[in-house]
Amino acid sequence: MKFLIIIPAHNEEAHLSFTLESLQQQSFRDFTTVIVNDGSTDSTPEVIRRFTEADSRFQTINLQKSAHQPGSKVVAAFKNGLNTQKPEEFEVICKFDADIILPENYLQTINEAFQNNPKYGLVGGLLYVEKNGEWVYEGNSNKGHVRGPMKAYRKECFDAMGGIRETLGWDNIDAILLENLGWKEVVLPELQVKLLKVKGSDYTIKPADYYGRYFYFLGLNRFLAYIASSKEAMKIKSLSFFLQIIKAYESCRSQQLELKISKDEQKAINEQRWNALKKKWLKI
C-alpha cells in the first residue's frame, strides 16, 4: 500500500528533524510526505529544506501565518497539504504531528494491519512522553483511541467519512463517524510513539472554555454536554469549573456557531455517546 503523510508544522525547529529522521529510518519505504510550513517564524523552513533537498519523498508547502486555534488550524494546514497531491494515487492517508518519533516498523506494521484486516479504517500506536528520563505512556486518552498526532486512515474509509473536519474535536469526531459507517478504529499497543511536546501548551484558550467549546463543536446535546462537563469538573472537584464549562458551551449555543458535521452525523455522535454512557454507568 502506498502512504501519503501530511505533517502540519508551526515553529517546530526543535522537534521536526526528529520526526522526519524517524520517517527516513522506516523499514517501509513507499510513502510521500508533505510538510506544511504553517506560518513558522523560526528556522522550521530551513529544517524542512534539508530533507526536501536530500530525499524526493519529502515535499513542502508554505502557508501564511494564521491565529492558533485548537483543532481548526491544524486541520486547515492538513487540508492544504492534501490538496497538493492526488489522493486517489494512495491507499493510506496519514496525519502526523511535527513533534513525534516513530519506531522503525511503524509504517510497515500499519501497512500489514490494513492488508490483513479489510474493515480497519483508522490505525495507530500509543503515545509516550518523557518523565524523569524515562518514556512512559501518556495516559491522556483511552487505549482504544488513535490520538491526533499519529493518525493513519485507509483511503476508502477517509473518503467515506468525508475526511477530517476543520473544528475543535476533529480527532474524536473521525472515530465516531467511521465506526458509524462500519469501519474499525484500532490501536496497536506495540507501536510506541514518542511525543516530544506536551499538547495544548501553546493554546491561549482557558481550560474551561476549551471543554465548553469542545463539547459544542463535537455536536453534543445539552444533556450529554452537561454530563461530560460534570465528569471533567469531578476530576478536580470543582463546581466553579463545571459552571465555567457550561457557560462556554451555552455561549456557543446562543451564538449558533457553525458545526462542521451534518444533522445525521450529529445524531450518530450523540447516540454513540449515549450508548457509551449507558454501558459504563447504567450497565445497560
Rank of each mutant, 00 (worst) to 15 (best):
Y153F: 15
Y153N: 10
R154E: 08
R154S: 14
R154G: 07
R154W: 06
K155A: 10
E156K: 11
E156A: 10
E156H: 03
C157R: 04
F158S: 06
F158T: 11
F158G: 08
D159P: 02
D159F: 04
A160H: 07
A160C: 12
A160T: 13
A160P: 09
M161Y: 11
M161D: 02
M161C: 08
G162I: 03
G162L: 09
G162T: 04
G163Q: 05
G163C: 11
G163A: 11
G163R: 03
I164A: 07
I164D: 10
I164F: 01
R165E: 13
E166K: 10
T167G: 08
L168P: 09
L168F: 04
L168K: 07
G169N: 09
G169A: 09
G169Q: 07
G169L: 10
G169C: 02
D171T: 02
N172I: 03
I173T: 14
I173R: 06
I173F: 07
I173Y: 05
D174S: 08
A175V: 03
A175Y: 00
L177P: 01
L178K: 00
E179G: 00
L181C: 09
L181M: 14
G182F: 02
G182C: 05
G182E: 04
G182S: 04
G182R: 06
K184F: 01
K184R: 14
K184T: 01
K184W: 01
K184Q: 12
E185P: 00
E185I: 01
E185A: 01
E185T: 09
E185F: 00
V186C: 02
V186H: 04
L188K: 10
E190Y: 03
E190Q: 13
L191F: 03
Q192K: 15
Q192Y: 04
V193S: 10
V193E: 04
V193P: 06
K194R: 15
K194C: 07
L195S: 12
L195V: 04
L195W: 06
L196E: 11
L196M: 14
L196N: 13
L196H: 11
K197C: 11
K197R: 15
K197Y: 13
K197E: 14
V198R: 15
V198A: 14
V198D: 14
K199T: 13
K199S: 15
K199N: 11
K199L: 11
G200C: 11
S201L: 12
S201Q: 13
S201D: 15
D202G: 02
D202R: 14
Y203V: 02
Y203H: 14
Y203T: 10
I205S: 08
K206V: 02
K206L: 11
K206F: 01
K206H: 03
P207Y: 10
P207I: 05
P207M: 07
A208Q: 08
Y210Q: 05
Y210T: 08
Y210G: 04
Y210W: 10
Y211V: 02
Y211T: 03
Y211M: 12
G212K: 09
G212H: 11
R213A: 08
Y214M: 12
